[in-house]
Amino acid sequence: MSAPPPPVLEARGLVRSFGGVRAVDGVSLAVRAGELLALIGPNGAGKTTCFHLIGGQLRPEAGTVRLAGRDITGLPPPRIFRAGVGRTFQITATFGSMTVRENVQMALLSHAQRLFGLWRPARRQMRAEAEALLARVGMAEQAERASGVLAYGDLKRLELAIALAGRPRLLLMDEPTAGMAAAERRALMALVARLARESGLAVLFTEHDMDVVFGHADRVLVLDRGRVLAEGTPEAVRADPRVRAAYLGGVAA
């Protein structure tokens, strides 16, 4: 009998401080294939910093990040992308001078290492793949629109399509449903959950909306002032008195 495969993402003892304040202070977490882990906590708890440490936007001062057992600590974002991490941003980031489909094509071309072509028009390359991805996130009809004019919820879905274009093993989603209507949120998260189950994708996401968290996450990790406060199934976390005291008390009572 072989040992169980290592978790897709395993972070250990991550530390990062800004101006003497430890924004992330010894956080460890792990996400397995097919699992959705929600990272929650009050504002300033260190969620986004945590994401940046894993996604390569920031370098940790201490700690390691492993992707399927491989050390990716401190690599720049492009290398982390190539290692198999896709991400969406809290404030959406798309290429405003491209259409929706071109945004996805861009990610596909990058994944296929075809960035340095000088002759064949980009918009004619990997078009079907891009459309398939857009169809998966429900953006097929908007493929020809400029990404700069999209509604907020559509931008989030486009970001998801872009993130998926790299065939990631791990998806990092910073507030994937912020600004969406309730029905939209449920649809998007259901989609993400389905993708995770079907293709063994590991998903780490932050979220303010507790309905989303408790409705879709397999496990929940609570951060407070840079430290892990609690971790477990949604039910266990919800029941945890420390969590209730520190965080949920005022919100979900």
């Binding site: 974002p77 941003f89 980031a93 290429f95 872009i162």
Partner: peptide, 9 residues
């Protein structure tokens, strides 16, 4: 940031 996150050097 988006360009970096999809692997553009």
């Amino acid at each position: 940031p988006r360009a970096a996150a999809i692997g553009i050097p």
